[in-house]
Amino acid sequence: MALLTLEQARAILTLGSDTQYDDELTVYITALTEVVEGLVGPIDPREVVEQADAYGPTLVLLQTPALSLTSLAPVLSGGSTVDVASLYLNGTSGAVGRLDGANWTGGPWTVTYQAGRSTVPASMTVAARLLLQHWWRTRYGAARGNPGGGEDFDVNEPVPGFGYAIPNRVLQLLEPYRRPPVVA
Score class of each variant (00 low, 15 high):
M1V: 12
M1L: 11
A2Y: 13
L3P: 10
L4H: 03
I12K: 01
I12R: 10
T14K: 05
T19Y: 00
Q20G: 15
Y21A: 11
D22E: 10
E24S: 11
E34H: 13
G38I: 12
G38V: 12
L39V: 06
G41L: 07
D44I: 12
V48G: 08
V48D: 09
P57I: 02
P57Q: 10
T58K: 05
L59E: 04
L62E: 15
P65Q: 02
L69M: 08
P74C: 05
T81N: 02
V84A: 09
A85L: 12
A85F: 06
L87I: 08
Y88Q: 13
T92F: 08
S93Q: 11
V96H: 03
W104D: 05
W109S: 04
T110L: 10
V111Y: 00
T112L: 00
A115F: 11
G116N: 01
S118C: 02
A127I: 05
A127E: 06
A128I: 04
A128Q: 10
L130Y: 08
L130E: 09
L131N: 04
L131S: 07
R139G: 04
R139K: 13
Y140F: 14
A142Q: 11
A143S: 12
R144F: 14
P147Q: 02
G150K: 04
E151S: 13
E151G: 11
D152Q: 12
V159G: 00
V159L: 12
P160H: 01
P160V: 05
F162D: 01
A165I: 10
V170C: 03
L174F: 02
L174N: 00
Y177I: 06
R178A: 12
R179P: 05
V182F: 08
V183L: 10
A184I: 09
A184W: 08
